[in-house]
Amino acid sequence: MRERRLVPRVALVLGLAFLYGPILSMIVFSFNNSRLVTVWDAAHSPTLKWYGALLHNEQILGAAWLSIRIAVIAASVAVVLGTLAGTALARLGAFRGRLLLAGMVTAPIVMPEVITGLSLLLMFVALGQLIGWPKGVGALTITLAHITFCMAYVTVVVQSRLAGFDESLEEAAMDLGARPARVFFRITLPLILPAIVSGWLLAFTLSWDDLVITQFVAGPGSSTLPMVIFSKVRFGVTPDVNALATIMVLLVATGVAISTVWMRYRERRRARDLQLAAAANL
């Protein structure tokens, strides 16, 4: 048994090194004084000067603010639409249009982004000519595009969470006379809340990070952070991007750590409640 486990374990360690090595190198070189980025200037490093430069870079700050606003709106709308779609697929049984909805909801997850981006832009242009809205492309069309691909991920997360519960709790509440809306808000929603939270975070990250689809549906004056970064790094490495990457990695790591702890706390409390309920019935 033992020699069979050794190979996968070595592969796991090497694989994790492969995943984290490049990120670590970015962090290390964000403190490097040299403009050459990958040549360590031992005499004047570590330095925080690239972080300082970042704070005064109006272009990057403006783009980051636009990206945050788009990501918050896109994630929030995507959570509502994705929860509806996930609930429909997991709880409504066989309804007309089920296959259509299921097909359309999973396709954006694997669809090459250039195709999604091109088709969305051509649709916006056609719509603009037909009814005069939207007027040109910009933050609005970016947000609409982001909602569309984000809701696909939220749907999958919500649907798989709902599939893990049977409907007996909801049916029991109905039998006790609760109206459908009350059942949803008192029973279903608390059950899928962890899925909704992680769905929102996932949607926020995907929107915040998207470059290819955004480039198609963006207009002049609506450059998001990934667009600014891409135009900077396309022609080489720049040290302030390393500093930006370090900040983003730290923020994400803290966010994921906090949400993991919170979710585990909720699960544990739920398990304890169930135990108490079972004990009370004895």
Binding site: P22, I23, P226, G236, V237, V241, M248, V256
Partner: peptide, 23 residues
Amino acid sequence: MLIVLPFWTSFLLRVYAWIGLLK
């Protein structure tokens, strides 16, 4: 979590990191 964590950090910046490693 270690496998999923890189996925949460910017895809663009993770590709960019390889320019610094490979050039």
